[in-house]
């Protein structure tokens, strides 16, 4: 009898403590944002899919088609090709295809690049129902858009 009463009392105390904490939380500021109306800022080092870095002067890609990234990639998702144009010292890139369906965003390609021609995009809205959306042509992407 005594034990039952004790349990009843401690149960009541537990209940009150819970209520007090929950009630206090009720008046606190929201921790969520109303995505997609508001969105959080991506940190500087956020790893999205890779994009080309533009040369500040010519506006072209810095890539020299050395294929280091192709070799470093653990998932074999990069295919690079380039040609050596006349009058230029280095090779320039003609094809750079990223198969994003296989990419695990490890960043090995960015790290291994000898001329720092790759960077991460901050784009994370990448949901789609079509597979070809994820075959990203980096050369075309750079030529088409401002970035």
């Amino acid at each position: 009898m005594k034990k039952a009463l004790g349990e009843l009392l401690s149960g009541f105390v537990s209940l009150l403590t819970g209520m007090r904490i929950t009630l206090r939380q009720f008046f606190m500021k929201d921790v969520t944002v109303r995505y997609p109306h508001e969105a959080l800022k991506m940190p500087k080092r956020y790893r999205g899919h890779i994009v080309f870095v533009r040369d500040a002067e010519s506006g072209k890609s810095l890539c020299i088609a050395c294929k280091s990234c192709e070799k470093a990639c653990p998932s074999d998702c990069i295919v690079v090709d380039g040609i050596k144009r006349e009058g230029e010292k280095r090779k320039s890139v003609t094809d750079f295809n990223l198969d994003f369906t296989r990419c695990s965003l490890c960043g090995s390609c960015v790290e291994v690049c000898p001329v720092d021609a790759l960077e991460f995009s901050k784009n994370y809205n990448l949901a789609s129902t079509r597979k070809d959306v994820y075959q990203i042509d980096l050369v075309k992407r750079m030529e088409d858009g401002p970035k």
């Binding site: 921790v31 940190p43 500087k44 080092r45 956020y46 790893r47 965003l105 490890c106 960043g107 991460f120």
Partner: peptide, 27 residues
Amino acid sequence: EKILDLLESVTGARLTYCYYRFGGLCN
């Protein structure tokens, strides 16, 4: 979430960090 934000600001990812390298760290 606060921890993930901290780690994301350093590593660039929220779960699959891949932050350590042989001999040190990547940044």
